[in-house]
């Protein structure tokens, strides 16, 4: 909110960009409301809502009791009856308490009511490891929701996308879940002023290359880009795709890149097995791009263990720049 630098050099943090999106939406549309635990005077577990209660009052910035199931249920009901609630979970891990409302209610009501109702709710979910918050507050469970028809699942990696995706989610008539990485909240980047929508379901080529395609979302995008920069110094040209949307997933952008490079690595923070990487690998293997593969597909994911509390172990349990770099190098050098 504070970094009001003019026009093209306008820079905000990821958290500020989200807050700006909420403020723009609330000013433009009186049906947009915020709900969640401690989002009012306290400003939210990660200070994302901060002072919005001062600007829009407690009727539109509502603290809900410590019951995710209850809070999410009220949000779904409000959405069903004409409001556009943005419900914040303190940690994405707590979405498990609200599974009934997310998966059985929000995702299915439009279908079960024959299209006569919709649930335009947005769930914001702080996700990921790296904050020393231990096993119950550090998970990356976005892939779970990729399995649910009726949901849209987004993963912004930059402040610009964080704002554009939230506005796009509000413009969408169906439930949208936005997984925000906790380590990105303070990251700064260019954010256009005013209202704009980041298209849902479109991946983005962040770095062009010829030797290997690295698909990564959220914080993994930044680690992949850093690894790609280091690899470039050795003459390895990595193409990096920002996945952005887990559901719907952008098949064409990924397939086009694999046809070009012939090698694919998927990097994600969630537990490696049964995850985003499996879906993308299978999608490529089933497509015509299969014939372009010149190496096995590699998945780099979270360890098959709860996220550890010990900081060194926590760091080692998810892909880091050096592990991405080493894996890509092995792939390109035919050691895999």
């Amino acid at each position: 909110m504070n970094a009001q630098a003019p026009t093209d050099l306008r820079t905000l943090s990821y958290a500020e960009a989200i807050r700006e999106a909420m403020a723009i939406a609330m000013e433009a549309d009186p049906t947009v409301i915020l709900m969640g635990e401690d989002i009012g005077v306290y400003g939210g577990a990660f200070q994302v809502t901060l002072d919005l209660i001062d600007r829009f009052g407690p009727d539109r910035v509502m603290d809900t009791p410590i019951s995710e199931l209850g809070g999410a249920g009220v949000a779904v009901g409000a959405a069903l009856t004409g409001l556009k609630p943005i419900f914040e979970f303190q940690f994405s891990d707590f979405a498990m308490l609200a599974m009934e409302q997310i998966v059985n209610q929000a995702a299915k009501l439009r279908y079960m009511l024959g299209g006569e109702a919709s649930v335009p709710v947005v769930f914001r979910l702080p996700a990921g490891s790296g904050t020393g918050a231990a096993a119950q507050h550090s998970q990356s469970i976005e892939a779970w929701f990729g399995h649910v028809p009726g949901l849209k699942v987004l993963q912004p990696a930059t402040p610009e996308d964080a704002k554009g995706m939230l506005l796009a989610a509000l413009a969408d008539p169906d439930p949208v879940m936005i997984f925000e990485h906790k380590l990105l909240y303070k990251m700064k980047g260019h954010v256009p002023a005013g209202s704009y929508l980041t298209p849902i379901g479109k991946a983005l080529l962040r770095r062009a290359g010829t030797d290997v395609t690295i698909v990564a979302g959220s914080i993994m995008l930044h680690r992949a880009l850093e690894a790609a920069e280091k690899l470039a110094a050795e003459g390895i040209s990595a193409e990096v795709i920002d996945l952005r949307s887990i559901r719907p997933i952008d098949h064409e952008t990924i397939l086009a890149s694999v046809r070009k490079t012939g090698r694919l690595m998927v990097v994600y923070e969630g537990v490696k097995a049964f995850g985003v990487g499996a879906e993308i690998s299978a999608m490529v293997a089933e497509s015509d791009a299969f014939d372009y593969l010149d190496a096995p597909i590699l998945r780099l994911g979270g360890a098959d263990a709860p996220v550890p509390y010990n900081p060194d172990l926590e760091r080692a349990s998810v892909p880091q720049v050096d592990t991405i770099e080493a894996a890509a190098r092995r792939l390109v050098r035919r050691e895999v």
Binding site: F290, Y292, D294
Partner: peptide
């Protein structure tokens, strides 16, 4: 042993 691309 051959990659799909090599086979193609």
């Amino acid at each position: 042993r051959a990659t799909p691309s090599a086979r193609h």
